[in-house]
């Protein structure tokens, strides 16, 4: 799962000579928060975020926010003066996992995707990753989630999958989460593409599994409630 499969390819870009007002309007129009700045050869030279724009603008509580003097001043500010040049970029052959970990590490919300000549070929943002994650969860399709507590030992998943498959139920996804309450336990969340889970739930219980109380479900939790 490479970034080039999930990235946005039609990137809205700016150029270094563009002014602040033009950039702001472009970003509002396209509902984007990151504007990569490219030169005439489409080589990435910087990025402007909505935060960069906002901090260059006067406070909205000022009366002269929209006055012609102020507009004039803002249209004199070129993007090359406010853009971030020290960029985190990724290659199209980065994986989605790379991108997720990089977002966590850098706290940056979007990465321009560049080829070997630094030419901009896409952008991958938290939004793209959210979409990919929704897709992986399978929640776009109708179904029912169940939560099962299992021992962390080999062969558990096979038993669960077999039991569900015997009921002729298809899987939308299966999540496995660490279960902090008990050592050596995992919480398994099969998303089942059916309205009919009563029988399979009973079957899993008869096999000795504990079904987790839905109000206690979680897939992520900071250990010790930090």
């Amino acid at each position: 799962m490479f970034v080039n499969k999930s990235m946005t390819r039609k990137v809205i870009t700016g150029n270094p000579e563009m002014n602040l007002i033009e950039a702001r309007e472009l970003m509002i129009e396209h509902q984007i928060r990151h504007l990569p700045i490219v030169d005439q050869e489409n080589r990435l030279v910087g990025i402007v975020t909505d935060r960069d724009i906002r901090s260059a603008m006067p406070s909205i509580v000022l009366d002269d926010y929209d006055s012609s003097d102020e507009r004039k001043r803002l249209s004199g500010i070129r993007l090359e003066n406010i853009m971030t040049r020290d960029l985190v970029t990724v290659s199209p052959m980065y994986t989605i996992q790379d991108a997720l970990l990089l977002i966590q590490k850098t706290r940056v919300g979007a990465f321009p995707v560049v080829d070997d000549e630094k030419r901009l070929i896409g952008i991958i943002s938290i939004r793209d990753l959210v979409r990919a994650f929704i897709n992986v969860l399978g929640i776009g399709e109708p179904g029912t989630l169940i939560g099962i507590l299992v021992d962390q030992k080999v062969g558990q998943m096979k038993r669960i999958v077999d039991a569900i498959t015997e009921e002729r139920i298809s899987f939308g996804s299966i999540l496995v989460a660490r279960y902090w309450e008990e050592e050596d336990k995992r919480a398994v969340f099969p998303y089942l593409l059916t309205n009919n889970v009563a029988r399979v739930k009973k079957k899993l219980q008869d096999m000795g599994y504990t079904l987790l109380d839905p109000m206690e479900w979680y897939i992520d939790k900071l250990p010790g409630n930090e």
Partner: peptide, 8 residues
């Protein structure tokens, strides 16, 4: 819908 069919 996070706990029951159909998810909407």
């Amino acid at each position: 819908p996070s706990f029951a069919f159909p998810g909407t």
